[in-house]
Amino acid sequence: MNCFVFAAAATATFAAVTGGIAAAPAIFAQSAQQIPGMQDASRVTAGTYTLDAAHTLVNWEVSHFGFNDYFGLFGNITGTMTMDPANIEAASFEIMVPIADVTVASAGLKDHLLRPGKDGGSPDFFGPQPGMAKFTSTNVMRTGTNTANVTGDLTMNGKTAPVLMAVEFVGAGANPMNKKETVGFHARAMIDRTQWGINYGVPVVGKDVTMTISAAFEKQ
């Protein structure tokens, strides 16, 4: 292709692209709108909220043989929060996580997480019917303008042990899709899985599991 033909083709392509953009002003109008959620506590009203299961996830990661970390996700999470922005330390949470809905990159590994124990023994990880993990808050302590430490009891695999989560308030506002008042948080926690009887592969598969949580609550 000579320079003239190439330049003509490039000009036509540019015109087509910019013409397409000009033909879609709604996209620009939408992007110019204010983001619905803002990190502004005055937007939060007191009351009871339920988790938006479609937009709440728990990411977990664990060391794999010391080479790298392996990741997975829990979804379809349900729960409630009662909160008054004037008294954050009185807030309470109850969260239910369906362990059986775990998502990982390998179908073989998911089978390993959920398969029964060999020859009638205990499963390596959760087994085929692990039920729900349940987190119930016991204490909320403000640590900054938009942060708090939330302590609670995590029940999983038939055992209960305390967990501390570092929580950040991310944003609040009206969800433009369903108009519900929504409050969002990010949280981070680390647990020792052996406290819940999940001992497989320790120490070559790490016992410390880091959890990163993204949660959206809608007011009822």
Rank of each mutant, 00 (worst) to 15 (best):
I35E: 04
T50M: 08
G79C: 10
S31R: 10
G131A: 07
Q34T: 15
N149V: 12
S63Y: 10
E61Q: 15
P85L: 04
D119F: 12
T45W: 08
G79M: 06
I77E: 00
V102W: 00
L154M: 13
A41F: 08
V102N: 01
A29Q: 12
A91E: 00
P98R: 06
G72P: 04
V58N: 01
S106G: 05
T50V: 13
G79P: 03
V150I: 15
M83A: 14
L113F: 15
N68P: 03
V58Q: 01
S42N: 13
I95E: 01
L57T: 14
G75F: 02
F126Q: 03
P128W: 12
M83P: 00
V104W: 02
I88R: 04
G75M: 04
R142T: 15
L113N: 00
V102C: 01
K110A: 05
V44Y: 01
A90I: 06
L114D: 04
I35Y: 09
R115Q: 15
R142H: 07
D40P: 05
T78Q: 11
D84P: 06
I95R: 00
S63A: 14
R142A: 14
Q39D: 03
V58Y: 00
D101Y: 11
M38E: 13
N146G: 05
V150K: 05
F135T: 01
A86K: 15
F135W: 05
E89R: 11
N59W: 12
Q33K: 14
H112L: 15
Q39G: 07
P36G: 06
G144L: 09
H64G: 04
A54D: 13
A105N: 12
A86E: 11
P98I: 08
D52L: 09
A133K: 03
G72L: 07
F67T: 12
A53G: 04
A53D: 06
M141R: 15
F74L: 09
T45C: 07
D124V: 07
S137C: 14
E61K: 14
F74R: 02
V58D: 03
K134H: 11
Q39V: 03
V140G: 00
A133L: 11
D40C: 10
I77Q: 00
F74P: 00
Q129M: 11
R142Q: 15
P36Y: 07
M141P: 02
S137N: 09
M132P: 04
T103H: 12
L51Y: 02
T136P: 00
M38F: 10
M38S: 13
Q33E: 13
Y70D: 05
N68L: 14
Q129P: 00
T80N: 12
I95V: 15
T147W: 05
T48Y: 11
Q39F: 08
F135D: 01
G121Y: 09
K134A: 08
H55A: 08
K110P: 03
A86G: 13
K134C: 10
I99Y: 03
F125T: 04
Q30S: 09
A54T: 10
P98T: 07
Q30M: 09
S106C: 09
L57Y: 13
E61P: 01
A32M: 04
P36Q: 08
Q34I: 03
Q30H: 10
P116D: 12
V62K: 06
G75N: 13
P36W: 06
V44A: 00
